[in-house]
Amino acid sequence: MADQKEEAIRQLIQYGETTTIEIKAAVPRHTEMAERMYGMANAQGGVIIIGVEDASHSIIGVPDERMAMTMDTILRAGRNNIKPPLVLDPPEPEVYTLDGKRVVVVTVPQSMGPVYQAGGVFWVRCEHTQFPSTS
């Protein structure tokens, strides 16, 4: 099963960024991570893959010494920066080894109820276009 999931992640990396796929070399600050997560949740959900160079789609991995901080930033963004708190699916980011390097995969479910926001700002989806709104 892990091999199938790893192959699916490789395919997402090859496709590159879309409205439902975001690729990051390293985890951004928790406020920026929250923005990406609630934007995806308010639209159609998506996947954030950390440890991949966005321009070249090269797998660079998350270094061992940054793994705990990466996981903490993701979880803090969802629990502390987003209102109401966003629960991922699965609830913890997943770690996969691709080409001997570890990548972190965050699966953001689509909101079926609340509109998620952070700092009084939220993203909504309108006719296939996302735009920022303030509350």
Rank of each mutant, 00 (worst) to 15 (best):
I48E: 06
I21K: 07
I59K: 05
E65I: 11
V124C: 11
T18Q: 08
Q110C: 12
G120T: 09
T70D: 02
M33R: 01
T31I: 10
S56H: 05
V124W: 14
S56T: 15
S58T: 00
P85E: 11
I13Y: 01
P109A: 01
P90S: 13
K5I: 11
P63G: 08
E35M: 12
A118N: 12
S111T: 12
I74D: 02
V108K: 02
I9H: 05
R36C: 07
N42V: 12
T129L: 07
I49T: 11
W123L: 14
G39T: 12
I50V: 15
N42F: 03
A118G: 14
Q130R: 05
V124S: 06
L98V: 10
T129R: 07
G45W: 04
E53W: 00
W123Q: 12
P63E: 05
I13G: 01
P28Q: 08
V105E: 07
E6S: 08
D99I: 10
V108Q: 07
Q14T: 09
E53F: 09
A2K: 13
R125N: 13
A41K: 04
R76T: 09
Q14I: 13
G45R: 00
R79V: 00
V106P: 02
I82G: 06
G119Q: 09
G16K: 00
A25T: 09
E53R: 14
P84F: 03
L86N: 03
K83Y: 01
V121K: 13
F131Q: 09
V121N: 08
Q44V: 10
E94N: 00
A41M: 02
D54L: 04
G100H: 09
N81F: 07
L86P: 03
V104S: 03
L86F: 03
Y15C: 00
R36N: 15
T134G: 00
A26E: 15
Y15W: 14
E53L: 10
K5R: 10
K83M: 12
R79A: 15
A43Q: 05
V115A: 11
D99S: 15
G61Q: 12
S111P: 09
M1G: 09
K83I: 14
A2P: 06
M71N: 04
A68F: 11
M33H: 04
E7G: 03
A25F: 03
E7W: 02
I13E: 03
G120Q: 08
M1S: 13
V106F: 01
R102N: 11
A43F: 07
G119M: 05
G46V: 08
S58G: 13
K83W: 04
K5A: 14
H30W: 00
S111E: 04
A2F: 06
D54Q: 13
W123H: 14
H128W: 01
P28T: 15
N81E: 15
D3S: 13
I49A: 08
G46Y: 01
S133D: 07
R125W: 02
T20C: 06
N81P: 01
S133K: 15
A34E: 04
R66G: 03
N80Q: 12
I50S: 05
S135W: 08
V105I: 14
S135R: 14
V62F: 01
R102I: 03
I59A: 06
A77Y: 04
A26V: 02
F131P: 01
I23H: 12
M69D: 14
